[in-house]
Structures are given as C-alpha cells and as structure tokens.
C-alpha cells in the first residue's frame, strides 16, 4: 500500500512537477521578501516577461513539431529596428504591417529550408541568427534607431498603454496565449503538429503533409517574433541593433522549463506560459534579494538543468540510472 501511494505521488510530480515547482518558488521568495507578492510587483514581472513570453509561444509550436528555432532573438532585433525606422518614414499605420510582412518573410524562408528542403533546423536557424543580425545592421547602417517625436506618437500604446488598468503587453501576451493554445490543442492543425513532431514518418504514412506543417510552425514563430518586436519598439521608442541578442536561449529555456521535449511531440502553451513566468519571477526574486542582475544568468542555467533532470528522473522513476 505504501508503495502504491509513493507511486501515486511520483505520478503527480511527473505530471504537474513544473506547476508545483512554480508554487514552491513563489512561496520561498514571498517568505524572503513580502514585497515579492505585492500586486504591482507581480504585474510588473508579467509585463516585463511579455516580450520573452510572446516569442516562447511561437517557439513552442516549432519545438513540438520536432525542430529548433535559434533565430528568434536576432529576428526580434530586426523587427524592432525595421518598425522604428519605418515609423518616421511612412508612419506607424503602414510601418506595422510592413514590419510584419518582412518578419513573416524571414519565417517563411526558414520554414522553406527546414520543412521543404528538410535541412537540419539547428544549422539553419543558427545560421539565420547571424544572417539576420547582418541584415539588421545593414538596414540601420549600424546606428541606433530612434523615433524623432517620442511624445507625439500613438505608437507607444502597445508597449506602454493600459486598458482598464491592465498593461497592454500583458493583454497581448494573454490574448496570443489563449488563441495559440486553442489552435494547438483543439484544431486539426495542432494535432498534426504533435504527430509530425512525435513521429514524422508515421505522420507521412497517415497522409499528413509534413513539410507544410513544419513550414507553418516557423511562420507562427515569426508572427510571434513580429509581435514581440512591436512590443519592444513601442515600449522604448528607440533601440540598439542587438536588443534581442541572447533571447533565443532564454526563450528555449522557458519552453523546456515548461516541459516540452526537445525531441518534439510534447508540450503545451499553458506549460510554456508557466515556464516563462518561472523565469521572470526568479529573476525578479533574485533582484529583490539584492543579488546583482548577472547572477541570474547562472541561476537560470542551474534551474533549467534541475528541471530537465527531475523531468527525466520522474519518467524513469529514479534519480540516477545506468540505462538511459
């Protein structure tokens, strides 16, 4: 009987481990510093996590489909620079769709290479990381990009506005999360993404157009990047060329922390959101505890390793094993 209960607990841990870890972190930080759970602090963390979060939503599709996307950070810099530059040249009403079009074009190109030409996604997106960076620098001429009339533009509403007291970035993040979660979990397309990532061959043998599904996951990812770029540009109304640098790894960390397998076929939008929030709250908690911000880089890594290890351990039922 005792053995059965132990197994039951193990199963709950394996399934909801990430959620439990999240709650434990929150309680721990709250005990260390009560300010941590103040409403304005929580709202602030979610708002600053929104950009990362929006990107992580798109990458979740790519990862479940069995691929990687390391180009999102560099692509986000591109979107930010492009929309800021075009803002003054053609006005925000045209700049926004133009930027979305260009970013989706990049996503389509990656999707074509990985989906239809079946090139390795790690190689393709790692290459695109640097290629897009070059493209961004070419566009900006290496200069920082700033909007001339910062106080006179309505463009700032996406990054700085509030609707009914809720910051717009949070609304956009939440709205996208709900829509994408429905697409992933409820539509035929979402089902096919899981099938293609879970067993691409079996998907082909079931008449699923694997190349098109992979292509679409990258298109979704680039759409999310464009949204993130819009939020970033609108929040600061000026930007360096390297604003998204390094974000690709944080995004991937959030997705993995949420429990999506890097081998594809598993993960959910909800879990990714939890992964994003854990990363955000840990960074915030460490700052509130008075640690320098660069400590968070190390701590983030430790947490990811712990999460992945516990995930594997829960699956095989013990912490260490000779046979993987």
């Amino acid at each position: 009987m005792a053995e059965l209960t132990k197994q039951g607990i193990g199963r709950v841990l394996a399934k909801q481990g990430i959620l439990i870890a999240f709650v434990v972190f929150m309680i721990g930080f709250a005990l260390a510093n009560p300010r941590f759970i103040a409403v304005d602090n929580i709202s602030g963390v979610i708002r600053s996590s929104a950009i990362l979060g929006v990107m992580a939503l798109g990458v979740t599709f790519v990862v479940i489909g069995g691929n990687l996307d390391l180009s999102v950070g560099s692509m986000m810099s591109f979107s930010t620079i492009v929309v800021l530059d075009l803002h003054d040249k053609i006005g925000p009403t045209l700049a926004i769709p133009a930027m979305f079009g260009l970013t989706l074009g990049l996503g389509a190109f990656i999707g074509f290479l990985v989906g239809y030409l079946k090139l390795n996604s790690l190689i393709v997106t790692l290459g695109m990381l640097s290629a897009i960076h070059g493209l961004t620098l070419t566009w900006s001429g290496g200069q920082n990009m700033d909007i001339a009339d910062k106080s006179g533009t309505w463009f700032s509403v996406f990054g700085q506005g509030n609707i009914a007291g809720v910051p717009v970035p949070i609304l956009i993040f939440a709205g996208l999360a709900i829509v994408l979660s429905l697409i992933l979990s409820k539509t035929p397309f979402g089902r096919k993404v899981y099938a293609v990532g879970g067993n691409g061959k079996a998907a082909t043998f079931s008449g699923i157009p694997r190349a098109r599904i992979v292509f679409l996951t990258y298109l979704i990812s680039s759409f999310c990047v464009a949204c993130a770029g819009l939020l970033q540009a609108s929040r600061s109304l000026g930007s360096q060329n390297t604003v998204g640098q390094g974000l690709e790894l944080e995004v991937l960390a959030a997705v993995i922390l949420g429990g999506a397998s890097l081998l594809g076929g598993s993960g959910t939008i909800f879990k990714t959101v939890i992964g994003v929030l854990i990363l955000g709250f840990i960074q915030n908690g460490l700052l509130l505890m008075g640690l320098a911000f660069y400590v968070q880089y190390v701590v983030t890594w430790v947490i990811i390793i712990l999460a992945v290890w516990l995930d594997i351990a829960a699956k095989r039922g013990r912490l260490l094993s000779q046979i993987a």
């Binding site: 409820k186 035929p188 096919k192 067993n199 079996a202 043998f205 076929g265």
Partner: peptide
C-alpha cells in the same frame, strides 16, 4: 512503431489522425 503509430499519442488521436480534418465542429476538432 516506426511508421504506423505516434507512440507518445493516445489511442484515439492515433486512430483518427488521417481524417482529423474532417472531424471538426467549427474550427475545432
């Protein structure tokens, strides 16, 4: 295992995989 099934998926989803496009109510499965 290699070609017939997505082993990590449940029984129902595997069985309806080739026709999932036709089993919709509105946009959803």
């Amino acid at each position: 295992k290699g070609q017939g099934l997505v082993l990590g998926m449940n029984c129902r989803d595997n069985m309806t995989l080739p026709q999932v496009d036709d089993l919709t109510a509105g946009p959803f499965v």
